[in-house]
Design a protein around this nucleic acid. Structure first.
Length: 601
RNA sequence: GGAGCUGUCGUCUAGCGGUUCAGGACACAUGCCUGUCACGCAUGAGAUCGCGGGUUCAAAUCCCGUCAGCUCCGCCA
């Protein structure tokens, strides 16, 4: 359906005088020319009604066998999804025939003349029933699915977000500069899509995982601030919120601190909300450190729309006779818990399932305690807890009758993460999450490094150009995992919708980071030598952020998959059911690209 | 790479070992109908049950494999 403040007049063309969603009482008596798709034909014998549809809405056409014989006869042959144009007069409907379910329902078009532009085969599914049609059918016939109100609204909403973003950044002095799609492998961790070079035998371009290096180079070049609505490519497995090609609002600014980037982005979101959803957004957003986020929510993308916060109860079990707890504490671990109200909801099976979830998240196990009406602990481990421990636990957590306490004893991160997963699981299952709420939070002070998959090796948590936090920089040699970074993520309703950092602009520090990452000189030179070289010619302090356009639009529309906000998405196996890509290519094309297929079928 | 769910006329689905080689709804076709808007009425066409194999006297229905779609883990900011 149409824009809130649509200007109908700009749609007038040599084919039409008005749009289908336009006719109302103010146009009564006027002759109009309309174009559109046949949404529905209702044939009453000597009288035929046709609902004509375009993107703006639906209007009822009336064909009378007496007043326009030619058009009436033609209307007999009309079927759904034919594209036609009609000339007719807007006429008021009698009171009892008014249709209150459509905006044009008080009037109708008495057709005098009609032309069929294009016939249609019987469509594979009806637009009215589109909601109950399987997604693969919708994807195969995407051009029909896209005719639906829902898809039109989704993509028009996305357009409005993009437009608001462009306007906003323009007003803040940003320059939109395009960067190469045929690029070189970027240092982010994902697998690259490769494009063979015909001219340079045996060499490949990589599609950009993001414009990261290019936007930084534009800072080196003195543009001060740039942004881009950028297509990015990552050859990894798909999810409901991940496609191999996706869109980022990607920006970079010179002479800025974390604070400056955050301010600009909060202003952008405020504009998006007021212009696109009509809602007033409260800024500044809440900010929590990565440490706080892990401690309280067990995740680096916390959902703050509900409670179920994680509480530390290590101190209660320091000298516990329950070895499962005390031994974890002895080796430096901790004991974490969450309290869930109304434990009656959870059957033994639910609890067993939760134990499985905790173990699946890497925890050694999960202890659950149900409090009955008399505040008695019901739990497989109740007999191992002393009266004193029960008392202190009850007081510390302010436990009430009917509460369920979930406890994980393990290393700090494992305990928190396991409970974090359970926290979202329970919130989801218990309907604690209300639709229509938009909860933003910044997570900052990420660790600069994390332990990599390879034993003993560290990898950058964000990317290797992220500037360390000055306060913790002193640990860089002795305990690099302790070093914090000037990186930040923006989280909306528990989903990461963007992340960025202030970048390193000191060559010595940059080289230090590379050496910690155990990157050899050759490797550095090979991967981003051009970038390092550019850093040698005077570069400003700078930083930026990238926001996931698809995810943002999906969340604002309260949808569950980004495929709903992408015109031509791919399936989970990265295939386009519409176009059939990817596909084989001819021998000639392979020869030109200097590629020989390995025959291991 | 792994786990789970799904796969029956165009669409959505019923059937889950034998009067069902498949029933319904919508769509479709033909005819009738001047006020419908989920129009109505009548008649009709349309599925070898994703594909391959097996078990059985008998399979849409059970088993194995395979393909496709979805959700998730791994992977990926």
């Amino acid at each position: 359906m149409g824009e809130a403040d649509m200007d109908f007049s700009s749609y007038v063309t040599s084919f039409r005088s008005n749009l289908c969603g336009e006719p109302d009482n103010s146009l009564i008596g006027q002759e109009v020319k309309l174009c559109g798709w046949v949404n529905k034909r209702r044939d009453h014998g000597k009288l035929i009604f046709i609902d004509l549809r375009d993107f703006s809405g639906i209007v009822q056409l009336v064909f009378d066998s007496k007043t326009s014989v030619h058009s009436y006869k033609l209307a007999k042959t009309i079927r759904n999804e034919y594209v036609i144009t009609v000339t007719g007069v807007i006429r008021k409907r009698s009171v009892e025939t008014i249709n209150t379910s459509i905006p044009t329902g008080e009037v109708e078009v008495a057709v005098m003349d009609m032309v069929i532009f294009s016939k249609s085969k019987t469509p594979p599914f009806m637009l009215d029933h589109r909601d109950s049609v399987e997604e693969n059918t919708r994807l195969k016939y995407r051009y029909i699915d896209l005719r639906s109100d829902q898809m039109q609204e989704n993509l028009r909403m996305r357009h409005r977000i993009t437009q608001t973003v462009r306007k906003y950044f323009d007003s803040k002095g940003f320059v939109e500069i395009e960067t190469p799609i045929l690029a070189k492998s970027t240092p982010e961790g994902a697998r690259d899509f490769l494009v063979p070079s015909r001219i340079n035998r045996g060499k490949f371009y990589a599609l950009p995982q993001s414009p990261q290096l290019f936007k930084q180079i534009l800072m080196f070049s003195g543009f001060d601030r740039v942004y881009q609505v950028a297509r990015c490519f990552r050859d990894e497995d798909l999810r409901a919120d991940r496609q191999p090609e996706f869109t980022q609002i990607d920006l970079e600014m010179s002479f800025v601190s974390v604070e400056d980037v955050i301010n600009v982005i909060e202003g952008m979101f405020k504009d998006i909300f007021s212009h696109v959803t009509g809602k007033e957004l409260n800024i500044p957003f809440k900010r929590i450190t990565w440490q706080e986020s892990m401690e309280n929510y067990g995740s680096d993308k916390p959902d703050l729309r509900y409670g179920l916060n994680i509480r530390d109860i290590s101190h209660i079990f320091k000298k516990s006779g329950f070895r499962v707890f005390s031994s974890v504490l002895e080796r430096g671990g901790c004991i974490k818990s969450i309290i869930v109200k109304d434990s009656k909801r959870f059957s033994r099976k639910d609890l067993d399932n939760m134990v499985g979830i905790a173990k699946g998240s890497g925890a050694a196990g999960l202890v659950w305690i149900k409090l009955d009406q008399d505040m008695k602990f019901q739990s497989p481990v109740a007999k191992f807890l002393s009266d004193d421990e029960i008392k202190v636990l009850t007081e510390t957590l302010n436990l009430e009758a009917g509460d369920l306490v979930l406890i994980v004893a393990d290393d700090f991160l494992i305990s928190c993460q396991a409970l974090g997963v359970l926290r979202t699981h329970i919130a989801d299952k218990s309907g604690l999450i209300k639709d229509g709420e938009f909860n933003f939070v910044w997570v900052y002070e990420f660790p600069l490094f994390e332990l990599g998959s390879e034993e003993g090796k560290i990898t950058p948590m964000h990317h290797p150009f992220t500037r360390p936090d000055n306060e913790t920089l002193e640990y860089i040699d002795n305990d690099p995992l302790k070093v914090k970074s000037q990186a930040y993520d923006i989280i909306l309703n528990g989903q990461e919708i963007g992340g960025g950092s202030i970048r390193i602009n000191d060559m010595k520090l940059q080289k230090k980071i590379f050496s910690l990452l155990e990157l050899s000189e050759e490797k550095i030179e090979e991967n981003f030598g051009f970038f390092i070289k550019a850093m040698e010619y005077g570069i400003p302090p700078h930083g930026g952020i990238a926001l996931g356009m698809d995810r943002l639009t999906m969340i604002l529309l309260n949808l569950k998959s980004i495929r709903e906000v992408i015109a031509f998405p791919k399936t989970q196996s990265a295939v386009s059911l519409l176009s059939g890509s990817p596909s084989g290519v001819s021998e000639k094309q392979l020869r030109e690209a200097n590629i020989r297929l390995v025959d291991d079928m």
